[in-house]
């Protein structure tokens, strides 16, 4: 079985997705900047599920290193998941050039570029694979509280939609997960409404089912499809405070 590549190998959602696929015997490669923790995660996959699993060091902001990694992986993975993300305090990055650069690179440029490179490899090598990007409902409409993050995620959504069309004929599927609220280290400091909040395992199940069925396009957990629709349709005059 071809492997799953997880970009953001220490992400809580990403780890849950990797486990869901490893459970059925799929080998895993974890790319993360904290390679020690990623190696511990890889060891966990090996011991729990008996699959080959390894960690590679990658800071996604080093785009050249990312491309080198993607081109060097042998054999070409069948599933690539980009779970890197950074949700800063909006006020802290608002007019801070370095913060802005970082929020855009981690949430948009790097995942889009690396998944695009993988998509081309899959197409060229005849791998009818799956690209999975972790987007966000925050990218469905700008919000006062996190618009740099949301804008970067919106960029990612647009890139993934373009990639989906581009790779359609090659049989490569492109999913953009918009998970709503998920209880992870990224949101540990926030009070989240229980009814709208998923676990990383919920998202992993959702992604697993969508990949297995060969689906493409945006992917929401159940209540969020509706929430997102309302958020997008809300007239600007009413959207002052969402």
């Amino acid at each position: 079985m071809r492997s799953l590549l997880l970009i953001g190998g220490t992400s809580d959602i990403g780890t849950a997705i990797a486990r869901r696929f490893a459970r059925e015997g799929r080998p895993v490669v974890l790319a993360a900047r904290d390679v020690g923790e990623a190696e511990a995660a890889a060891a966990d996959l090996r011991h729990r599920f008996g699959v080959p699993a390894r960690a590679v060091a990658l800071d996604v902001r080093d785009l050249e290193a990312g491309l080198e990694l993607v081109h060097g992986l042998e054999p070409c993975p069948e599933i690539a998941v980009a779970a890197v993300g950074w949700l800063p305090e909006q006020a802290a990055v608002r007019e801070d050039p370095e913060g802005v650069r970082r929020v855009v690179e981690v949430n948009f440029t790097a995942p889009a570029l690396l998944l695009a490179a993988l998509g081309r490899r899959m197409a060229e090598e005849g791998v009818r694979g799956h690209l999975v990007a972790l987007g966000s409902v925050a990218g469905d409409r700008g919000r006062a509280s996190n618009w740099w993050y949301g804008a970067a995620k919106a960029g990612l959504h647009a890139a993934m939609e373009g990639l989906r069309q581009e790779l359609l004929d090659a049989g490569v599927r492109v999913l953009t997960v918009r998970p709503g609220f998920v209880r992870t280290k990224m949101t540990a400091h926030l009070a989240l409404p229980p009814f709208l909040t998923s676990t990383p395992e919920d998202i992993a199940r959702l992604v697993h089912r969508a990949v297995t069925k060969g689906r493409s396009g945006p992917l929401y957990p159940f209540p969020w499809r509706l929430v997102s629709l309302l958020v997008r349709l809300l007239p600007a005059s009413l959207a002052r405070r969402i």
Binding site: A40, A41, A43, D44, H47
Partner: peptide, 9 residues
């Protein structure tokens, strides 16, 4: 909860 790796077996 996040400390849930099997490290050696």
């Amino acid at each position: 909860g996040p400390l849930d790796f099997v490290e050696a077996f």
